[in-house]
Simulated scan of single mutants.
Amino acid sequence: MTAETPIDEALLRANPLPRHSQGDDKNARGTVLVAGGCREVPGAILLAGLAALRAGAGRLQMGIGSSLGPSLGLAMPESRVVGLPETEEGMIHPSAAPSLARFAARADAMVLGPGMPASPEASQLTEALLDALPAGSEGPALVLDAATLGDLRQQREALRRHAGRIVITPHDGEMARLLDTERQAVLADPLSAAREAASLLHLVVVMKGGCTHVVTPDGAAWSCDRGDVGLATSGSGDVLAGLVGALLARGATPLQAALWGVYAHAEAGRKLARLQGPIGFLARELPPEFPAILASLAAPQP
């Protein structure tokens, strides 16, 4: 198996993001749909949505349980918010999958999972949505996060319909549940766990951690250890999911979106650590750093 390639500025400049010209309207930069949340964690999709807009997506839409929709709309006036049938916990009900799929079919990328509690209903919603979404280029690229990941081993047939268009963003606990193994086994060798998941599910894996690994189904791997300890904070993963979703919506491939997203997320943490100290900055403070970081990487070199 080949060694990992470091994710650095030279790598990203050799794999540039799609460029957007003066005069392009918001549709040219793509539409992101973020769906998830529950009554206990309604702000997770707000963080993901904020990250998506700060990473350059042209339009943002959000799907959440109906009781939470008005509050989310007021908190995020830049977004269209759709309230959907919900469970007792305020999570999107699995029966909403067809409606959510029709909504998602008009988006370029969809981020599913931030703020959703791990539950049978979350797995049912994920599987039903994968079945209902248009396949291939007719449907949105996908970022699957949090509670959507637990039962993906049992959803491989549904995943195949969207081959080449999915990024997953697990931390060690989520990866352990996905692979039906112990968390300590993932912590002992996160790269091997990421390779196993990428090969099994035929998608791009972003294995989050102190050193984050990006792996493709053929086992090729990249790593980023630039992240500061302060990134290990509530909501940081939601921000990363929204950032990757925005880059997909802008036209990046899943691998490009993962590489650029991981680096920009880590670099935002480094900037905040320098300004505020290594721990104590908030996940909501990461997205405002993205425009300058992405612009600097896209700028021509002298």
Results as ranks from 00 to 15, higher is better:
142 L>W: 10
110 M>N: 11
212 T>M: 00
283 A>R: 03
41 V>M: 15
89 E>V: 06
146 A>C: 08
137 S>K: 14
38 C>N: 12
249 A>N: 02
275 L>T: 02
301 Q>S: 06
258 A>Y: 12
143 V>R: 04
297 L>K: 09
215 V>D: 10
52 A>S: 15
107 A>V: 07
85 P>C: 14
191 L>N: 05
115 G>H: 14
244 V>I: 15
154 Q>T: 12
266 A>N: 02
40 E>P: 04
101 A>E: 07
215 V>F: 09
147 A>T: 15
265 H>L: 07
225 D>Q: 02
204 V>I: 15
35 A>I: 08
273 A>E: 02
273 A>F: 00
182 E>V: 03
30 G>K: 08
9 E>K: 04
9 E>A: 06
44 A>H: 06
285 E>T: 10
35 A>R: 01
290 F>P: 02
227 G>N: 10
181 T>S: 15
137 S>W: 10
164 G>W: 10
61 Q>M: 07
143 V>S: 00
230 G>Y: 03
266 A>G: 03
4 E>C: 04
103 F>G: 07
155 Q>D: 03
147 A>R: 04
8 D>H: 14
249 A>L: 11
63 G>Q: 05
188 A>N: 03
164 G>D: 11
190 P>T: 01
285 E>S: 14
189 D>W: 05
292 A>R: 12
124 Q>Y: 06
175 M>A: 13
136 G>T: 01
183 R>T: 05
111 V>W: 00
187 L>S: 08
122 A>F: 14
285 E>V: 11
151 D>K: 13
68 L>Y: 04
99 S>N: 04
6 P>D: 06
234 S>H: 08
94 P>E: 08
79 S>N: 08
223 S>D: 12
136 G>A: 10
216 T>D: 08
133 L>G: 08
178 L>Q: 14
26 K>D: 09
198 A>V: 15
184 Q>C: 05
80 R>Q: 13
246 A>P: 02
292 A>G: 10
211 C>V: 13
235 G>Q: 02
72 L>Q: 12
85 P>R: 07
90 G>C: 09
251 G>L: 10
69 G>R: 11
16 P>I: 00
118 A>F: 07
200 L>R: 13
174 E>Q: 01
272 L>S: 04
36 G>L: 11
25 D>S: 14
206 V>G: 09
